[in-house]
Simulated scan of single mutants.
Amino acid sequence: MPIKLPSDLPAYDVLNREGVMVMSEDSASRQDIRPLRIALLNLMPKKIQTETQFARVIGATPLQIEFSLIRMTEHQTKNTAAEHMEAFYRPFADVAETGEKFDGLVITGAPIEHLPFEEVTYWDEMTRVFDWTQSHVHSTFGVCWGGMAMINYFHGVPKHMLDHKAFGCIRHQNLAPASPFLRGFSDDMVMPVSRWTEVRRDEVEAAGLPVLIHSPETGPALVEDPCHRALYIFNHLEYDSGTLKEEYDRDVAAGKDINVPANYYPENDPKRAPQNRWRSHAHLLYGNWINEIYQTTPFDLARIGIDSTDWRNSAGG
């Protein structure tokens, strides 16, 4: 079944052309089933690109998904038209005020990783989001900075600055092949990495959290937090084929000292078109996450945050 999107959202036409099953709200309303309510708290500057990337991987399952877009209340984006934000996004304060609940929430990365968490202008509201997920969201997926912020808030696991950017397509190891979130995963895989910070495996495991995917080169990539019904991924399986290229070209044009993304271009030649070697695992991971939500979420949305306390055992954590 398809993901339900507003027919005038840019992602609707993009995904429809790619063959991803999308459904307008009018069509979805005629189906007598409850769609999963998945929200995206989008902290990235390029909102349209990011919402399309996540809609692509979330909408590739046989389940009907109702996709909602959320933004921080006071933070104003400089890279996306105000008309788009007004038409498709709701501020978190409005969402929280209504008391509505979601089966799943994705919290994206943000280009603020050089800042201590407490110096982020919207950190106070971000902590309210984290607390709100425990009563209003069945399962949360923190991505890159979003994941580092969540694991720090809930467990005190610090992020560490790197002396150079972890950048490229890095090989990772599957440490938990029996995990329902890694169903169908190979023993190792390539994953896009783009960050100046890291969390460390010993500190994650000291907090009592299982590391599901790890790289000797760039550290933990996927961590499960059963007690908070959350997954944290510090890399970018959702990236398009050309996203790392866009980041590299941007930094080169700005005169920044940036390394060529490793193992991304054929023969590491930026003049050649990059190859996508992570797409299948991206669909597997988010498909597995959606499936676990479907298997464990209460049918009655009002019970989310109440019956969700059983999520750990139901999800195999």
Rank of each mutant, 00 (worst) to 15 (best):
P6A: 13
S7Y: 04
D8P: 08
P10E: 08
P10G: 05
A11F: 00
N16H: 12
G19L: 07
V20L: 15
S24Y: 02
E25T: 01
A28W: 01
Q31P: 04
D32V: 02
A39V: 00
A39S: 05
L43S: 03
M44C: 06
K46Y: 02
R56G: 04
I58S: 01
P62C: 09
L63D: 14
L63T: 06
I65W: 12
S68M: 03
S68D: 11
M72C: 12
Q76E: 15
E83H: 13
R90M: 10
P91T: 03
A93F: 01
V95Y: 10
A96Y: 10
I112Q: 14
E113P: 09
H114Q: 15
E125K: 09
M126P: 05
T127S: 08
F130W: 12
W132Q: 03
Q134P: 12
H138T: 04
S139W: 10
G146I: 00
G147W: 08
M148A: 11
Y153I: 00
H155A: 08
G156R: 08
G156K: 10
P158M: 07
P158T: 06
L162E: 09
D163N: 13
D163Y: 06
F167K: 08
Q173G: 03
F181R: 13
R183D: 15
G184F: 03
D188A: 06
M189F: 09
V190M: 14
R195S: 09
T197R: 12
V199W: 07
V199H: 12
R201Y: 01
D202K: 11
A206C: 03
A206W: 02
A207Q: 12
G208N: 11
P210N: 03
V211N: 10
L212R: 10
P216E: 11
P216S: 04
E224G: 12
C227D: 13
L231I: 01
N235L: 05
G242I: 03
G242R: 05
L244R: 11
A254F: 08
K256I: 00
N268K: 07
P270R: 05
Q275L: 14
N276K: 10
W278V: 02
A282Y: 04
L285N: 14
Y294N: 15
T297Y: 10
S314Q: 13
